[in-house]
Amino acid sequence: MKKSNNKIHHIFSLTVALLLAEIPGAVAAISVTVASPNSSSGLIVKSDQVTINTSGFVRVGKLTTATPDATKNLPTFANYQYWDSIFVDVNSASGGGGITPSTWNFNSSGALSGSATGVSASTFPTSTQLWIWAFNFGSLTSGSTGGIPVFSSSDFGAGKITEWAIMSADEWIAPADNLAKSLVINQVGGDTVNRLIAGTDLGNNIAMIPEPSSYALLLSALGFMVLSRVGRLSKKIGGGRA
């Protein structure tokens, strides 16, 4: 008889559970903060290691693929289209829906800070790898969802987009609902897998990489310096040609 009562109780409980709508709780949201206020936390700088202080901004989000094509790392319009197609912003209407902070535009000291609040925790569930895509040109419109500039081919080249950086870090994973995550620039580098797709690790700071022609020149200069050093070293140890 007791067994029968238990059965009735369970049927009642399950029926109640099915019939009653869950009380709506807080909208599951997270905050994502960019932590780059000074060189102690790490800054994103230009390829010549000078701070970015006239224009430029960062996009923050996730990638729709776990294996992005790292060969498309140079700042060209074609590569922009590739990364734009796989980048889901925490602050876009079609992405996380968070509020865009004005402080994701580089300030006069080349610093970044501030949070995108109200980011959808269902679009950015716990442990989602978060990325920063930094540009040396353009700016975000803050205060509401989105405000992310859309670039065309004419936005690439001298006086416009000539450099960018694309990076993440092992620590940059989305938090649980109702919590915040801070993306500290000096955490980039030395990760379990390479998460610095475009950029140079300077220790605390990350330098952007320049557009292809400058990048080739930069590589040539680096190669020349290496060869010169090797030559001098060879002479020093008497290994040079007679």
Binding site: S31, P37, S40, S115, T117, Q187
Partner: peptide, 19 residues
């Protein structure tokens, strides 16, 4: 410093983050 976050919740479903 810079990395760990503290969240404080208001009465309407929002929260502010502190570092």
């Amino acid at each position: 410093e810079y990395s760990d976050s503290i969240s404080v919740y208001d009465n309407s479903g929002n929260f502010a983050s502190y570092y």
